[in-house]
Design a binder for these strands. Sequence first.
DNA 1: TAGATAAATGTTATATTATAACAAAATTAA
DNA 2: TTAATTTTGTTATAATATAACATTTATCTA
Lengths: 160, 160
Amino acid sequence: MLTNAKLVFNKNINQKHTEAAIKHAEYLCLQKQQKFTSLRRTVFEILWEDYQPLGAYEIKQRLSMRLGKKIDPPTVYRAIEFFVDLGLANKIESLNAYIGCPFPSSQRSYIFLICENCKNVAEVSTGSVDNSLALIMEKLKFKLRKQHIEVKGICSKCSP
Amino acid sequence: MLTNAKLVFNKNINQKHTEAAIKHAEYLCLQKQQKFTSLRRTVFEILWEDYQPLGAYEIKQRLSMRLGKKIDPPTVYRAIEFFVDLGLANKIESLNAYIGCPFPSSQRSYIFLICENCKNVAEVSTGSVDNSLALIMEKLKFKLRKQHIEVKGICSKCSP
DNA sequence: TAGATAAATGTTATATTATAACAAAATTAA
DNA sequence: TTAATTTTGTTATAATATAACATTTATCTA
Ligand SMILES: [Zn+2]
Ligand SMILES: [Zn+2]
Ligand SMILES: [Zn+2]
Ligand SMILES: [Zn+2]
């Protein structure tokens, strides 16, 4: 029953979650003395608006729409980097895409489940894989700073 | 003691391993009715020559040197794709780089250990992480086709 | 508050990674 | 040998990302 894991599907993300994410971002920025500027807020909202991985240029386009002016790549990449550095967003490497992090305060790491059929991405936070990994890293005397797990296959909704 | 894991460091890769990898590639191509052409062989050798992740354009340059003529990107990407599809090479997503696979026939999957200091990459094949992952995927009814794990930190040689 | 300092954003240009589309050559099949 | 298939060559371009410097905005200090 996944008692030791948390799963986040995009369909389950709603206005409430988004608002909570924004609140959390505001709080974290305050705590870390970082500025949650208007531009950054807008990018953050975009990252959450349908909770799907977005490419930088897709974000750029949406940002441009919202602000009613042309936006250049560095503007977007800077905002993305800001949130990734704070752990409030993640890059999905195999998609070159970015997504808000639903477990920003978790000490655990995440697994991204990428459905090759519907293209939806879910994110699961779990301790068991973390533990297995940590054990191996310890044996290898590898000081783990960051782990990144992406899984591709077919999600439950897409399989018969 | 890592009895249930195999680790491959680039320093431990030598001529013998490379030759074995080539033999295996030849065999697999024969088995799958794929052609291990001269061009592909050269790319394969490059992928193994110092067993470090190489970007496509680095491979392109080395290939160009070896063949003494200009090589265009599609030529390189095709060869890379050929080996990745056969499971004889892997892409390290966070580096946009490619590396020969030292466990081509393993049913297990791999973990890439990327040292942020010396930039070396090791590859470890282990069952325990696989099992943890498989368990979660089963619970989530996610049909796992492929998993990809990248770990960043400091390797044993670089830590005091 | 004025002026100095630092941080964020704007702007232009360019680097890096990857693929589309079509042509020619080489291999394999009929 | 001709036809079909696969591989490689070639040209052009798409997609992703960053460097460098200018301007604006926010923060600090005197
Ligand atoms: Zn990438
Ligand atoms: Zn996350
Ligand atoms: Zn699906
Ligand atoms: Zn190292």
